[in-house]
């Protein structure tokens, strides 16, 4: 069975590495992007099954990413947003633009895994 492809856009290297490890262990093929540029570059080449993105990213925020995916690329892939607490306004914006789910920092990797699986099952 082919592994589901997952794009993880997170600028915090440590957290990205941790989540990457957990998601890979959970059976996903994970691609890491440290900033918006890399995300764009990746999306121009590949279409992942799901995107997990931090809201605060260099060059290209998570909100912009959602807008880019939904409006420019017209992709309907699930997008899960990671945001720090107290950033409710951004989260609301993200949902308005078409984010599928939201998880706040500090992140529980196990919870993230469950959410990813749920979103993929929906599709």
């Amino acid at each position: 069975m082919q592994k589901k492809r997952l794009l993880l856009a997170e600028d915090d290297e440590l957290l990205a590495s941790l989540l990457n490890f957990r998601l890979q262990k959970g059976g996903y093929e994970v691609s890491l992007s440290a900033d918006g540029k890399q995300v764009k570059e990746y999306l121009s080449r590949y279409t992942p099954d799901i995107i997990i993105s931090d809201i605060m990213m260099p060059y290209f925020s998570g909100i912009e990413l959602i807008a880019y995916v939904r409006q420019e690329l017209n992709l309907n892939i699930p997008i899960i947003i990671i945001s720090s607490a107290g950033n409710e306004e951004n989260v609301l914006n993200a949902f308005e633009l078409g984010a599928n789910d939201f998880i706040s920092k500090p992140v529980s990797p196990s919870e993230l895994l469950v959410r990813v699986a749920r979103e993929l099952n929906k599709t």
Partner: peptide, 12 residues
């Protein structure tokens, strides 16, 4: 110490 701020639950 860095990860402690970013993770929660069982991982923490």
């Amino acid at each position: 110490l860095d990860l402690r701020k970013d993770v929660s639950g069982d991982t923490q």
